[in-house]
Structures are given as C-alpha cells and as structure tokens.
C-alpha cells in the first residue's frame, strides 16, 4: 500500500500543507530571486540548510556561472496624442536607454509579417507590438525576438504587448535575445490594455509619441549554484530518478508560482518518501536549478557535467508549469516506457489523476530528453497560470495549499515507484 500511504500522508496526514508553508516562509523572507541577485544566493543558502535539516543525504551545491542583469529604474510616458503614464517591465538582458531616454514616434504592428510590410516606416521609431495572445509558446516569440526584428528595420526601441492570457493592467517580464550583427535596442513589455489602446489610436490615424527611459544594465556573469539532495538508492545507488524545479525567478512578485511551487513539491516528494521510512532501490535526486529563466543556464551546466552518466538516469522530472490541480503527467520516452508510466499513474486512481500526456514541458530537463533519457513534467490546470506568470501578481496569494498537496503526492508516487522498480525505464 505504498502509493496509498504516500497519498494519505501528503493529502490527509500530518504532512498536508507542508510544501505551501515551507514555500511561504522562503518567498516571504527572501522575495523574488533574479539570476545574479543577492536574493537568489540567499535562497540557495537557506535551501542548503533546509535540506540538511530535513535529513536528506548528499546535500551539496554545484557551482554554476550565471547571467547578471539588473533592470534599474524604468518608465514610459505617452506624450502624444495625450499624456499617459504607461506601466512597463524591461525584458531580461535588455540594454538601457541613454540617461535622457528615447523619445520617438510609435509604429504599431500586430505581427512580424506586418512589421516587414511596414519596414520603410520603422526607421527611428519605437515599434509597438500588439500581437494577439494565441498560446504561450507561439506568442512568446514576440517577447524573445521583438527587439531583434524591430532593430533589423531601423527601430530605436521596442515595446511589446505582455504575453498574458488575461490582464488587469499588469506588465509581464521575461527573457529576450539579441542577435549578433543586429543593433541592440532597449525593449520592454507594456500592458495588454496599453497595447490595444495604442493600436486603436494608430488605426484612427493618430500620431503617437512615447518617451522611454530604462536604466537596465548587463554585468559580467556571476557565481551561483544548483542545489542537490538525495535519498540514496538501496540496491542501485548509482542509478537516478531526478526530481526538479527551479529556484530562481524574475525580479517581480515573489516567484511563488514560477517556480517556487515546482521546486517545493519536488523537495516535498523526497520529504514524503523519507517520512514514510522508504528507501527505493535507486537514488531519488532532488535538483533545484539556478538561472532557468535566463535559458536553463544551471541545467545546461549540470548536463555538461553529468551527461557522461546519462545511461544511469531512469527518469528526469521537472515541475515548471504551476502546481495547481494536476490532471496527470506529460511524458517523453519510448512507447514501452509510456506503457509502464501509464501503469505507474494508475496508482493515483484514488486522486483521479491518472493521465499520461505527450510532450514533456521543461527547459531544464530537455537536455536529458534530447539525450534519450525518459522525461516527465507535471500537467496541471493552467487556466490562470499565464495571467500571473512573470508579473507582480506571482505571489503566495495565487498558490493553494490543497492543490500543492495533491501535486506533491503525484510527484512522490511517480518518483518513488520508478526509482524502486527492478528495471530502469526502457528507451527505444
């Protein structure tokens, strides 16, 4: 009755709400945890102590070099056709403006195609993207590539409609990438409301002038750590089931949802296994990644360091899409491994969470999946996730302890059973 014991302890027993309470303590104490910030390093040190005090094994920090970007003060003011202070959030890795800012006319587009059609009008202007929200993977391209595409046609800055499924005038930040050979221009996200208003104004033939000021600065890479803890396997200790979430966040809100919840249900999985006195045949390894938001920097360096042992990894798991009510897991691997995972998920019938979907989500575990290691991510109710993602609204207020209990139970049952089965998951 091991699966039932895990579920009972996590959802109904003395461990219920523990991951929520632990997360609240960390994020209320430390705040958001941007790559390169003192907050992130404080969080890593606190987690190192927490994992040791929890009695987990082989608790250690693995050094990583990570980007250091700071946003500084920033503002955007529409001056024409009327004065209007706009809420903005500069995008990670963006350069700043000159100290006096950039004042320029706006060119509004709804797509990259429209930008290319209007290329002759773009020189010297601030490109405002008012792209519709289709889905995160589709629409995020405007945040990531918006500055580069605008700079290619001679724009002096870009302002991008936040990649958000719902808005109450909330700007959403995130990472953006420059391209070699293309001038770097300042870039920030504006609210859905302002993007739509500016687009309406432009469609009426209004001339729009915006004054943008950003103090953003990029600094040399800095030292950080992936945080690791284990329950060592009893029979095949060199073989691993990796359970993970990322400890860093953006510098707004508390990073409670992205990805505090994922990191803390991963820790909770090991705590639950330990509380029940269980020791699986192979090692369950917790990794709390650093600098995921900058493109899986900590995970990339972990993979480079450990890929020589990839044949010893039975399953890599990551929760980085919220810890709301789970519906199942997403799985990447062979059909035979998928059939086994369906059997594993059938153990979660008491919670009615048994589905195995395709297409694992997880920047940090993709390196392993590409190398042929089976991967799994938590699949949950995403209906509100992208309303809060990368915004000031990502706080403990959006978290639900009961849903975290259930997510932790799913995570613990899957990781324990796969780690304890006699054979590793088949790969081809």
């Amino acid at each position: 009755d091991i699966a039932k014991a895990i579920i009972d302890l996590a959802v109904y027993g003395k461990s219920q709400n523990r991951s929520y309470d632990r997360l609240g303590l960390l994020v209320d104490t430390v705040g958001p945890r941007l790559s390169g910030s003192k907050n992130l390093e404080n969080a890593i040190q606190i987690m190192y102590q927490n994992l040791q005090q929890n009695g987990l094994e082989n608790v250690h920090l693995e050094p990583v070099k990570i980007p250091h970007w700071e946003r500084g003060e920033e503002s955007a003011m529409m001056l024409v056709p009327r004065v209007h202070k706009m809420a903005i959030l500069g995008l990670g890795s963006s350069i700043g403006t000159p100290p006096e800012g950039i004042m320029a006319e706006a060119l509004v587009v709804t797509s990259f195609d429209e930008l290319r059609r209007k290329a002759p009008e773009a020189r010297g202007k601030i490109v405002v993207y008012n792209q519709p929200y289709i889905s995160y993977p589709v629409t995020v391209q405007y945040r990531v590539r918006g500055a580069v595409e605008a700079a290619k046609v001679g724009a002096v800055a870009s302002l991008i409609r936040s990649v958000a499924s719902f808005s109450i005038y909330s700007p959403h930040t995130g990472f953006q990438e420059y391209q070699d050979g293309v001038p770097k221009i300042p870039t920030a996200c504006i609210t859905v409301e302002d993007a739509e208003m500016i687009a309406r104004m432009a469609s009426r033939g209004n001339r729009i002038v915006i004054h943008l000021k950003m103090d953003a600065k990029n600094y040399p890479d800095t030292s950080s750590f992936n945080t690791v803890a284990e329950i060592t396997g009893s029979k095949y200790p060199e073989q691993v089931v990796l359970v993970s979430g990322h400890l860093d966040s953006w510098d707004v809100g508390q990073g409670a949802m992205d990805d505090g919840g994922g990191a803390f249900i991963s820790w909770e999985a090991l705590s639950l296994i330990k509380d029940l006195g269980l020791r699986p045949k192979r090692t369950v390894r917790l990794v709390l990644w650093t600098a995921e938001e900058q493109g899986g920097i900590g995970a990339s360096q972990y993979f480079q360091l450990h890929k020589v042992n990839s044949s010893n990894y039975s399953l890599v798991m990551e929760s980085d899409s919220g810890t709301f009510l789970p519906t199942g897991i997403q799985f990447s691997g062979s059909e035979k491994a998928r059939a086994i995972m369906k059997e594993v998920m059938s153990l979660l019938k008491p919670l009615n969470i048994t589905q195995v979907f395709s297409g694992t989500e997880g920047t940090d575990i993709n390196f392993w999946i590409q190398a042929g290691v089976p991967g799994a991510s938590l699949c949950d109710d995403l209906s509100t996730y992208f309303a809060f993602h990368h915004s000031h609204g990502d706080t403990m207020t959006v978290m639900d302890p009961k849903k975290m209990n259930i997510a932790a139970a799913v995570w613990a049952v899957v990781s324990y059973v796969v780690a304890d089965m006699e054979e590793m998951l088949p790969r081809t």
Partner: peptide, 24 residues
Amino acid sequence: KAIFKDDISQETFQKIKEEIASYG
C-alpha cells in the same frame, strides 16, 4: 546487469505491470 533495456517482451511487461500494481 544491463542498466536499462532497449526492449521488453510482452511477458516481461506483464511482470512489470504486476510489480507496479503491488505498490497500489
């Protein structure tokens, strides 16, 4: 011991199913 198998037979899969069911 092979650390992971590239393939499993129907008979082996039945044993794995039974093994997993024992956790339920």
